[in-house]
């Protein structure tokens, strides 16, 4: 099997598994809806700055919860089985792609729920939507590798948070700035720099993950 075929098979396997046991994705969706509702009950109405920050914080925690189990749910024996039939790079790439799809799906749902419950004028919906997509993708790339690392420490969820926060804070700063620009409906040329930085961080993260995962896996 060629490399890309391996990746394709693994991604479709992930989707199939997710589809069969719907409880995981349902619990994340419920988590998002209930957090949004709690925030609404607590704040009622907020200004744009807080609105934006709240949204990213909700999305951040939802994505940590969603992705932290991506390596844990598979037993040691199954991982050993993968190890014997596919390359390590195919495994990490398929995980990243699957998590990207999952995060894009989750963040769009989160955005819809959030904007229905919390009404707020968005100045430039297209750029805001791009920010959400990029945010979901970036969270997925960073958290996949970190969850791979933290799964080696005995599935400790505190370790996952400790390891991922410093890595994700720079992303969050750029994302909040970009989405704030979109909320205020500033000129699009201003936002290109931030979009470029986000894309660059994603490329760097994926490359490093591909380079490093074989070492992590060989146990």
């Amino acid at each position: 099997m060629s490399f890309f075929q391996q990746v394709k098979t693994l991604v479709s396997k992930e989707i199939l598994l997710e589809w069969r046991s719907k409880h995981a994705i349902n619990s994340i969706l419920l988590y998002i809806v209930s957090t949004v509702f709690v925030c609404y009950q607590a704040f009622k109405s907020v200004d744009t700055l807080v609105w934006n920050a709240l949204f990213w914080i909700i999305l951040l925690f939802a994505s940590i919860n969603a992705i932290s189990r991506s390596f844990v749910q598979e037993s040691q024996y199954r991982q050993l089985y993968y190890y014997s039939i596919v390359s390590a790079k195919a495994v990490i790439l398929s995980k990243i792609i699957y998590n990207m799809l999952l995060m894009v799906f989750l963040s769009i749902i989160a955005y819809f729920v959030y904007s229905i419950v919390f009404r707020n004028p968005v100045g430039d919906p297209l750029i805001y939507f791009i920010a959400i997509l990029l945010g979901g993708v970036s969270f997925a790339t960073v958290f996949t590798m970190v969850s791979g690392i933290s799964s080696k420490t005995g599935n400790n969820s505190t370790i996952m948070a400790v390891l991922s926060f410093p890595v994700v804070i720079p992303l969050l700063i750029v994302l909040i700035k970009l989405s704030q620009n979109a909320l205020q409906g500033l000129d699009r040329a201003i936002s290109y720099g931030e979009i470029g930085v986000l894309l660059a961080i994603n490329v760097i993260t994926i490359t490093i993950s591909l380079l490093l995962f074989p070492y992590l896996w060989r146990d």
Binding site: M145, V146, L163, P170, I201, I204, I208, S209
Partner: peptide, 9 residues
């Protein structure tokens, strides 16, 4: 692995 992962960021 974590060290190399975190440094470029």
């Amino acid at each position: 692995v974590y060290n190399i992962f975190a440094f470029p960021i």
